[in-house]
Amino acid sequence: MDAIRMERLTKHYKDVVAVGNLSLCVHKGELLSLLGVNGAGKTTTIKMLSCLTRPTAGDAFVNGKSIVTDTAAVKSCIAVSPQDTAIAPGLSVRENLELICGIYGFAKEKQTEKIDELVALLGLKSVLTKKAGKLSGGIQRRLSIAMALISEPEILFLDEPTLGLDVLVRSDLWDIIRSLKGKITIILTTHYMEEAEALSDRIAIMKDGKLVICDTAAKIKERAETDNFEQAFVRIVKGVAE
């Protein structure tokens, strides 16, 4: 079954077509990366799928629920880790996690259980009582992802999760994302080609709001006739431009 089905999904901002007629399916448990240069429409697509922005035309079905007519049902099964770190800076790490648990109405025992689980998974134990605003960028990003995961989403949107992080922190986050593969459906946007290649089951390349190709990294390289994924990306995007 498809976790997400996009049907001619379109978003206009005045005369600018941010996303145009995007039709794409994401399978349950799959990790799909959205790749594209700046302004390709990746973030707008995520915003529409997470009910932050209403499509101008078309629709998408998340777990079978329309993002246009059934936003409450969609919101109950998704979680978003936005591009920038999205935490409450004046609260401790634990309080940030409790905030999300409270919003999703978790009982006390479940809340404790989920916090313990996420703290172990994301290595946050040593900073549990520290104020989130005082933590390093890498730890804040981990907390941001923990806040997305704690609501037990069936579908997780990760918008450039490793942007601006050093190599070691990025590697740690890759391990965390890998550990989630197959358990939940993940849509990831990134500018890092190696990240998309290393983590994704399939990669969708967008340009000027349109889908150019959606396939495995191997197939994309094959089509671009190169062994280097970055080169394949450049060729495909430029090829379409020409």
């Binding site: 009910c51 919101k75 998704i78 770190t85 999205a86």
Partner: peptide, 9 residues
């Protein structure tokens, strides 16, 4: 981005 996150809850 905190509000953006919370708007998706």
């Amino acid at each position: 981005s905190l509000l953006q996150r919370l708007y998706t809850t």
